[in-house]
């Protein structure tokens, strides 16, 4: 069947079998191998992409069902002049990546949390941990990932016109110093 998709802003047109999964199209059809396959059962979250803005597991979406939608993958995050996004930079600074296999899915999943809370209060530690339930990481123990999100949110608020650099620095150091509980 003929399918059109917009992937990272670029229109794509191709033919696909009805039982093809979106993650297979992205990796094997379009060569976007930043999206990983960890478990292929919807558990691990390393295949997370944004579908019409919402984070989804691309191993739990049929390519056919995504037809007509806009898909954003990790490749779209890092092609803005080669610079890391605020979230990526904050994860790097807090050592939120170790082996890195979960990182693309983490970035795409957490990006929705950061975006959806951008206009209001920063997400609490509990909210960040709850948001991470769909992403497995066997290296970090999640603590550094949580600190990365807190840093990204603090920096974003500092850069927003209403905030000040000083309050953001306080928030960032507070976030980093906050005692982290086990997940």
């Amino acid at each position: 069947m003929d399918i059109t998709l917009k992937v990272n802003g670029r229109p794509e047109q191709f033919s696909a079998q009805p039982n093809e999964l979106l993650v297979e199209r992205l990796r094997d059809g379009l060569g976007l191998t930043g999206t990983k396959v960890g478990c292929d059962t919807g558990q691990c979250g390393t295949c997370v992409v944004r579908l019409d803005g919402r984070s989804v597991k691309s191993c739990l979406v049929l390519t056919a069902s995504a037809g007509g939608s806009e898909v954003a993958t990790i490749e779209g995050e890092t092609t803005r002049g080669g610079e890391l996004t605020g979230l990526q930079e904050a994860l790097r600074q807090e050592h939120g990546t170790q082996c890195g296999f979960c990182t693309p899915g983490m970035v795409m999943a957490l990006g929705e949390l950061v975006d959806s809370t951008a206009g209001g209060a920063a997400p609490t530690e509990a909210e960040i941990r709850e948001w991470l339930t769909g992403n497995l990481c066997r290296c970090t123990g999640y603590h550094s990932v949580v600190r990365g999100v807190q840093r990204a949110c603090a920096v974003a608020r500092a850069e927003a016109p209403a905030g000040t650099a000083e309050s953001a620095a306080v928030a960032a150091s507070g976030a980093a110093a906050q005692e982290v509980r086990g997940t």
Binding site: G45, L51, R54, K57, L60, A109, W131, G134
Partner: peptide, 9 residues
């Protein structure tokens, strides 16, 4: 239910 990604779909 599930996780944020499962709840989104």
């Amino acid at each position: 239910n599930g996780d944020p990604q499962v709840r989104n779909l």
